[in-house]
Amino acid sequence: MLSQIDGEHGSFNLTTFADELRLYFNSNSAFEIRVEQDCGSFGAYLTPLKTILINLVSNASKHHDRSSGTIRISSERYPNYVEITVADDGPGIPKQYQDQIFVLFQTLKSRDEVEGSGLGLALVQKLARSLGGSVSVVSNPDVARGTVFTVRVPLNTPSAKTPNDIQGLAA
């Protein structure tokens, strides 16, 4: 597994991937996926990065409290890393639960209310860390609707990664 991940470094473009996301979520056309800013193509480990974004977009639509909404994604390049944000216009996540959302098997709603195993955001965090990056959340439903997840991944060349950098992905 590690050698496969080590070998799948390629060019990632947010606008192109958003087109793939729209096809993937075409059964839920009530949610618009909008690219607000695209920093252009950059090198990335494609499967982990795409898995992170699929989970974040899926959560944004699954946990929305309305039948339609907008999911905004953007990317910005910095000298040593890229930041990708996924923002929704849903109900938000109360501050007292924001640490819990990254815990394995933790869900904020009962499984009767929302289909989910509590794996998605724990996986997002694990994958981001395995890439040498991070994921954070900003949401304050007392002030405004919506949640913003920010994923930060370093700009690395494929030779800079070793299998030890991506440990635990097979777990």
Rank of each mutant, 00 (worst) to 15 (best):
Q100T: 03
G120V: 11
R152I: 10
P79S: 15
T15H: 01
V137I: 14
F12C: 03
A44P: 00
L46F: 07
E113K: 11
Q98N: 08
C39N: 08
V86C: 08
Y24W: 09
I52Y: 04
F105H: 11
A18H: 13
F42I: 02
Q125W: 00
A144T: 09
I84F: 00
V114G: 06
D19N: 15
S139E: 15
T147W: 09
N164K: 10
S110W: 12
L121W: 03
G168M: 06
A144D: 14
V153A: 01
F105S: 11
P79C: 10
I93Q: 05
V35F: 02
G90S: 12
T70W: 01
L53N: 04
Q167T: 08
V57C: 07
V151I: 11
S117D: 10
R66S: 13
L127E: 04
H63C: 00
L46A: 04
R66Y: 10
G7D: 10
I73R: 02
S130T: 06
S159F: 01
F12N: 05
G69E: 04
G7M: 02
H63Q: 01
V86R: 04
I52K: 07
Y78F: 15
A122H: 12
L123H: 09
G132V: 13
Q100E: 09
V124K: 07
A44L: 00
E32T: 05
A160T: 06
V103C: 00
F102M: 05
E20L: 10
G7N: 14
A30P: 01
C39G: 13
S117G: 10
G146L: 15
Y45D: 06
P79M: 14
D6E: 10
Q106E: 03
I84W: 01
G92P: 10
D65F: 07
E113W: 00
S74E: 08
S41Y: 00
A171P: 05
N59G: 11
L169T: 10
L169C: 12
M1A: 11
L23K: 11
L127K: 02
K62I: 08
G120I: 02
T107V: 13
R152L: 08
M1E: 07
S67F: 12
P158G: 04
H9A: 08
D99H: 07
T147G: 04
A128Y: 01
R129F: 11
H64G: 05
A44W: 00
N156R: 14
N28P: 00
K50R: 15
L46S: 08
G132Y: 13
Y81M: 13
F12D: 06
N13Y: 03
I5N: 04
V114M: 09
S117F: 03
F149A: 09
S110G: 14
I33S: 05
Q4C: 00
V153D: 03
K126R: 15
N13C: 01
D88A: 01
V153H: 01
F105E: 14
F12R: 03
Q100P: 05
Q37W: 01
Q98Y: 10
E113I: 03
I84L: 05
L119W: 11
G120A: 15
D88M: 05
N156I: 02
S139W: 14
Q125S: 06
A122I: 04
R145S: 15
